[in-house]
Amino acid sequence: MRIAYYPGCTLKLTAQNLEAAALASLRALGLVVEELPRWNCCGAVASLAEDDLLHQVAPVRDLVRAAERGADRLLTLCAPCYNTLARANRLMAEDEEKRKTINLFMEEEPDYAGQVKVVHLLDFLRDDLGFEALATKVVRPLTGLKVAPYYGCMLLRPKRVAIEEHPTLLHRLLAALGAETVDFPAMTDCCGAYQILGHEAMALDASAAILRSATRRGAQALVTSCPLCDYNLGARQPDLRDRHGDLPELPVYYFTQLLALALGCAPEALRLDLSPPGCRRLLAERGAIAAAT
């Protein structure tokens, strides 16, 4: 069984922390994945228009790359990449007419019919390791840390590509790491995503609503798997608090960062230099990492 790994553009730039922590964790767990030697941007969002097949081409091309490598699964870390690739894959598997057109258009590539399964690290950990086994590998438990598991949209909707029907995977992961999970009403709400470019104030307000919901329930930190959520909720938190002055600071981590920490990976693997300063501060206060690493 071969697993190809698709990082996505953002993981090579602003979200290097999401990737570095994930790869360190996978090494610590003894799980081997291989990055595709050649890949292109997946397109970030699924094509929604029935007559627009052109925007399906980018994700399908990546699936072709995975099939070429003999992979039967394509592993993703970034929630929007997961969503885009999984939806294009369903289209290729299920819509014969569109599959024919797309294959005909991409005449320089071998035909593809949806045979590679797109997985996200969360369902990969559930299926290939299991959270009970994961718990036994934890060397630095996050005991007492109240974490809000923020699923957002891309892992759960639309239903046909959801990694699970109801949001439990982040809960189970965090519980395995020894953390206390905090349920909050906005757990699956949208942060405004790329609308931070088109409608900045609206996206900041939507993000503020999520942070407010989590802090009201006593969360000390929030985890995500999406670089857009991380940007809107984390990097843009100062702008967001300019509009919503009463919001306390809430550190936003990638779930992989807490995973790597609990598995005893070197603190450098968390790449906290790319996270907002509060993320390092919270972990240092708990003595989980040295203040200056």
Binding site: N40, L54, V57, M106
Partner: peptide
Amino acid sequence: RCVACNACTK
């Protein structure tokens, strides 16, 4: 705005 259509390479 690249959509990976590959027309450029072709």
